[in-house]
Write a protein that binds this DNA or RNA. Structure first.
Lengths: 155, 155
DNA sequence: CTTTCATGTAACTATCATTGTTACATGAAA
DNA sequence: TTTCATGTAACAATGATAGTTACATGAAAG
């Protein structure tokens, strides 16, 4: 089961950086880990660098490092930095159909999307990059009282 | 702002069907409403027909009708019938990278996705097609105590 | 029974986003 | 000065979705 998604890729890289030795990891080395291309790594990390989550250095001994202690970086921060969204009714063009029914449905779906995303953000906020690198099961059990994240929370 | 998404399209169609007169609506007529093609309409409704949400009839006077009273059809049912998913770490191939870190991250993201989707399903369950067709603001106010669905719920 | 209407479906094209690749410029350390 | 590694642009490859055309199927109207 090969997997995808910007967030998965970014967190995968960050987890490698978090457990890495002092030396920075190069895009080429990370590309091997992720079975992909160095340019893909750089593209994935560009936004995270602007957000102050990772730093990069050129030349000999250069590469990528986490900009702060992994315990101070939440998954929420990464999610936001990537610009990910839950959106059940995404905007597609600037045309505007003008249909009132469509607008009504879209507004409702936007609301539900926002609610679902708010919950997601709260969950992501409880997990740090350090938790992720450590396996983070303890943290999950603390938070939800269950090792199964699948269980629906009491809202 | 032209909008997209299977769920939006399906609900838009269903709302038109819910407010339609007794006569079935043809794919061609619906295509005009949605600024699209009759075949797109048929494709969008095929899954809903199998799920028993709409029925179709051929020939003269044929077209699409809701299979049950709109008040008995929840948005959740539509969402499920369409096979929509919130998935932060979708499966892409059968290769399997074998990286333990990736698997750990993916499992966590799956859990969060499932939680967010569970919340979404609970919300969709409270809205019926009839609510949608009527404007459904009253129903929303009843449920959440606010006319702004954007507000984060007390979990 | 033939015509007309409308769905059902396959096949193909177009469009768009993502990914992979190549190439080259920039900057830092050896 | 050479080598390493990022930064970025440009382009091809891939995959998903949407749009289109064409034709078969079935039902009602005449």
């Amino acid at each position: 089961m090969k997997r995808d998604g910007k967030l998965l890729i970014a967190l995968h890289i960050l987890a490698h950086l978090a457990v890495a030795p002092v030396r920075p990891l190069t895009s080429a080395a990370l590309a091997v880990c992720l079975c992909t291309n160095p340019v893909v790594i750089r593209r994935a990390l560009a936004g995270l660098r602007e957000a102050g989550i990772v730093t990069s250095a050129k030349g000999h001994g250069g590469g990528w490092t986490v900009a702060r202690p992994p315990a101070t970086i939440s998954l929420r921060e990464v999610y936001v930095a990537l610009g990910e969204r839950i959106d059940l009714a995404p905007v597609r063009g600037s045309a505007g159909s003008g249909c009132l029914i469509e607008a009504t449905v879209a507004r409702a779906l936007d609301g539900f999307s926002a609610e679902a995303e708010a919950l997601l953000l709260r969950r992501l906020d409880t997990i740090s990059l350090a938790d992720l690198a450590a396996g983070f099961h303890q943290r999950l059990i603390e938070q939800t009282g269950s090792s199964h994240v699948m269980s629906a929370p009491a809202e």
